[in-house]
Write a protein that binds this DNA or RNA. Structure first.
Lengths: 144, 144
DNA sequence: GAGAATTAGTTTGATATCAACTCATTTCTA
DNA sequence: TAGAAATGAGTTGATATCAAACTAATTCTC
């Protein structure tokens, strides 16, 4: 029973991988006072047209109420701005501010470098960590 | 810049997959008043010898302080018991109670059925969702 | 066009998550 | 063996996460 769940459950394995990767990227983003999730959220606002919450929440795979909460610390820091949609006053447009964009541009190279390190680690581990077709190895995924 | 992160970042994709899968399994475990994480935690205690926190936290890929917190609601419900380790009084042994085991045994078939549904969905989507070797498709992974 | 149904977000209350700090115990070392 | 270093957990404060219940605005229907 345990072996089934721990060894094969995609949910179990994904949660575990998510924790390990979150810590890893949280570490590299710490100088910017950003978490991996805040980085992803800000990045998802960098589009020609400011998206609404209904655009962004599914894009991040999260509940709308989670997004509502996640916006607040970033809004307090003036990294984004929330406005009422002109066309549909129920909707909220999420705008990346100049400060938000500037921060993203500083964080991006750091993300890129870390992701390259991660890729290299995964390639090295490829054979060992792909028992079930789930190519997320976690056991050896601590900081390289 | 955005395309890089959203399209290729293993961290982004894993967090997103983790959210979607967590909701999916939370839904099927709701009749047992368990979350996917609580199910996994209880399952990880089902061993011949009661493990310590230092055994379980890395097994779940989580910080020790997270585990401390996660134990509390389950302990309140008498699904597990925490005792001081005889050999090393710093350590804590995590024991699955009879009630905890009984609950796991009722929840297991539900987990199994859901996991089979998930597998089937993934097989069907295989070609479409494996652009980068990360076989976690999320876009179409809502409840089947 | 008025009332019903739908859609967009927010609030609340619970659990989850981590880093940094602290406390207790054990192990190491001079 | 006494003091130092290392180890195992707990605490605190902040953010993350969701479901359920709620409010406001829009769309649908008769």
């Amino acid at each position: 029973m345990t072996a089934d769940v721990a060894g094969r459950c995609l949910c179990f394995r994904t949660q575990r991988a998510a924790r390990v990767l979150a810590r890893r990227f949280d570490t590299v983003f710490r100088p910017f006072n950003l978490t991996n999730g805040q980085f992803s959220l800000l990045m998802s606002l960098y589009r020609p047209e400011a998206p609404t919450m209904s655009d962004v929440a599914p894009f991040l795979g999260m509940d709308r109420s989670t997004l509502t909460a996640a916006l607040k610390p970033l809004e307090r820091r003036d990294l984004l701005e929330v406005t009422v949609d002109k066309e549909d006053r129920r909707g909220r447009r999420l705008h990346l501010t100049a400060a938000g964009l500037a921060l993203l541009e500083r964080a991006y190279p750091v993300w890129k470098a870390e992701h390259d390190r991660l890729d290299a680690a995964l390639v090295a581990l490829d054979a060992a960590i792909d028992p079930d077709g789930l190519r997320i190895g976690v056991e050896a995924l601590g900081r390289t």
